[in-house]
Simulated assay, not measured.
Amino acid sequence: METVIFIKEGRQNRSAMRAVINYCQQEHKTYDSKSKRRLVSGVNCDGANSFREFMATKKVYGKDNGMFFYHYAQSFSPTEKITPEQAHKIALEFAEKAWEGHEVLVATHCDASHIHSHFVINSVGFESGMKLRQSPSTLKHLRKLSDEICLAYGLSVLKPYESGGKRMSTREYRARMKGESWKQKLANDIDKAMEFSGSKDEFICSMSILGYHMTWTDERKYLTFHCPNGRSCRDIKLHDDKYLKDNIERELLQREFPDGEKQPTGWEDSRELYEQHLRERALAKAELRRVAESYS
């Protein structure tokens, strides 16, 4: 999976911009041992000399004040099959389309399990002298553009937000891309429990085996998951409609009564079928316990 995040920089001045550029260009982070080259480039500038060129542009237009620069990152999941060189190529294509008329430093870091590229954008356009402006929809537009480029390369992207869900924070995006998000683990465990559940009671039991308990009542609109790590999470904060209470209930009801009947038929009339069902559920629970034990 890939995504783009905006990294908010609290300090906006000459020294802060230099510090961010120096961080992004660190050799031990940008050196790719496979291609044997540093993955530092520039769009509309020389990446290695980006600080000097950024400052020269600002001085030409008398705009070395206010907002100095913007900082973004494009990250790939550790499970994504992509090389640092490929990630850098994609990052350059993205930067060229995302910030036309602006100088952009592009630096790909390959020292961590998740390959990611940093973009430092000069706030002043080198041709127009106009400052780059952002709106609440800017990040949404950039993610859409990045997704289109990555899909063209055959790479996976994060699902778009479903209607009704809470917006995912930058911190959570970073955690998900590193495989460290507890909410992502919760979602994965819900998926696993659903594999072994044919009814609401079985789902509750399956989640209990994995260490969860739930606040699930008719009076409450949301389903709340209480996790083994002591945290709690409402269904609406998992960023996918399939985890919403109504959708889980509907799916489990369809599994329990596939023909829409009020009472299940077949088991009462056939002891053999009923015993076979019990054996299948026992095997399913044993497998689920094995999965749970693998976490510990």
Rank of each mutant, 00 (worst) to 15 (best):
I5A: 10
I5K: 12
R11W: 03
N13R: 11
R14F: 02
A16W: 03
A19Y: 05
A19R: 05
A19E: 02
V20R: 02
Y23W: 09
Q25L: 02
E27C: 02
S35A: 14
K36G: 01
R37V: 10
N44C: 06
N44D: 12
G47E: 08
G47P: 04
A48E: 11
A48K: 07
S50K: 02
F51N: 09
F54Y: 12
K58I: 03
F68T: 07
F69V: 09
F69G: 01
H71M: 13
S75F: 04
S77H: 15
T79V: 06
E80W: 10
E80R: 06
T83G: 04
T83L: 06
P84D: 09
E85Q: 11
A87G: 02
E93T: 15
A95I: 07
K97R: 15
W99M: 05
E100K: 13
E103H: 04
L105W: 06
L105F: 09
T108F: 08
S113W: 00
S113T: 07
S113C: 07
H114K: 01
I115N: 02
H118I: 06
V120Q: 00
N122R: 05
G125Y: 12
G125W: 06
F126D: 00
S128E: 12
S128H: 15
M130W: 10
E148K: 12
E148P: 01
A152G: 14
G154P: 11
G154K: 00
L155C: 08
E162H: 15
G165S: 15
K166L: 12
M168T: 15
M168L: 13
S169F: 04
M177F: 04
E180Y: 03
K185E: 13
I190Y: 05
K192N: 11
S199A: 10
S199L: 08
S199W: 08
E202C: 08
C205I: 04
C205W: 09
S206L: 03
I209L: 03
L223H: 05
H226D: 00
G230D: 09
R231G: 08
D235V: 14
D235G: 15
I236F: 01
I236L: 03
I236P: 00
H239Y: 14
K245W: 05
K245Y: 01
N247V: 10
I248P: 09
E249M: 11
R250P: 00
E251L: 08
F257V: 02
P258N: 11
G266K: 06
S270Y: 06
E275D: 09
R279E: 15
R279L: 09
S294H: 00
